[in-house]
């Protein structure tokens, strides 16, 4: 699973670290100074590294809870995000992480107690509800068997009901959720693309069918579910392809119980896009016509007002109140 496990000297004796590395006795364990010595080096190649990524166990200092970018997520209070992990075990070709980081290695920040105190401080500082997104710089559930993220952070939010946790994922690692009672202030937000895009661009991601099955189980258990149709990648027969996907999803789930459904197009900061093109000059997705707006690159619409058409169609399945556009 990992080519190596790097462990910061400072945390090498922590119980959580020992627990994480225990099942990987065959994997080389290497003590390093600060994680940046491995993660932030120049001359790394993300694409090559992605073939044999390593795990880096580290302690995160500084701001552990950050203001969410404007336009990210749903209404309902002040929005924040926190990243207990950097990078993801999946390999979506459209993922901005490829352009953001020099390294494809996974960094897991194991000082969960520090995250807890900053999350709690942030919750206390807000009037009313506040929202916390996890899975902005990673997929929070995908590494659950290693990170025990749910195990720890669900308890934090259970004790702090005015903090709403959204776990953004494409993973079917939901056992930890199914094995415990649901908490009302946690939303599991699953992202989907139509079959054609999923096959072309979402490498190593569980199939649409498996993800729907995971959501069915979660919903039956009483967990709040959200659906994210992001990023929309323009293609011929876009609306028809999304229609198939919408039917597949909304026929399987209880639409009335859904927390929210969102739509957002493929967008990437120009600098990240440039780096990603350098890594994958042979990728068809990046050979397409693009446009630049406000420093963000997006694909040119291959149809006429495709996003609007998708929005209209989506709102025939879900009520207007549950829908938002992520831009």
């Amino acid at each position: 699973m990992f080519s190596a496990i790097y462990i910061e000297e400072e945390i090498k004796d922590w119980d959580r670290v020992k627990e994480i590395v225990e099942p990987f006795s065959n994997v080389p364990q290497i003590i390093c100074g600060r994680y940046g010595e491995v993660f932030n080096r120049t001359n790394q190649n993300f694409r090559i590294q992605k073939q044999t990524p390593a795990l880096i166990l580290a302690k995160k200092y500084g701001n552990l809870v950050l203001q969410a970018p404007s336009g990210y997520g749903f209404e309902g209070g002040q929005s924040f995000y926190f990243s207990h992990m950097l990078n993801c075990i999946y390999d979506c070709r459209y993922c901005f992480l490829q352009g953001m980081y020099r390294s494809a290695n996974y960094v897991l920040f194991v000082n969960y107690d520090d995250f807890k105190s900053q999350i709690e401080k942030s919750i206390r500082s807000c009037d009313g509800n506040s929202i916390y997104y996890s899975g902005y710089d990673c997929d929070s559930l995908a590494l659950e068997p290693v990170s025990y993220f749910c195990d720890y952070f669900l308890r934090v939010f259970e004790e702090n009901p005015s903090g709403i946790l959204e776990i953004r994922t494409k993973s079917t690692q939901v056992r930890a959720l199914l094995e415990r009672p649901p908490i009302p202030n946690c939303i599991i937000a699953m992202s989907f693309s139509p079959q054609k895009s999923a096959l072309l661009f979402e490498h190593k991601v569980p199939s649409i069918q498996k993800r729907i099955q995971a959501l069915e189980k979660l919903q039956a258990k009483g967990w709040k579910i959200a659906i994210r149709f992001e990023p929309v990648i323009f293609e011929n027969r876009l609306v028809e392809n999304y229609k198939v996907l919408f039917e597949q999803i909304f026929d399987s789930l209880d639409v009335h119980q859904l927390h929210s459904v969102s739509l957002g197009e493929f967008r990437m900061p120009k600098a990240y896009y440039k780096s990603v093109v350098k890594l994958y000059p042979d990728e068809e997705l990046f050979a397409r016509e693009t446009k630049v707006e406000g420093g963000m690159i997006s694909l040119k619409d291959t149809g006429t007002d495709s996003l609007r058409n998708l929005e209209d169609m989506l709102q025939t399945y879900v009520s207007h109140e549950k829908y938002y556009f992520c831009g």
């Binding site: 080519s3 065959n26 080389p28 010595e37 390593a54």
Partner: peptide, 16 residues
Amino acid sequence: EVYYPSLSIEAKNTEG
């Protein structure tokens, strides 16, 4: 100075 050569998944026998 310290350097960290990348390893492949198959590389089981490694040392500092």
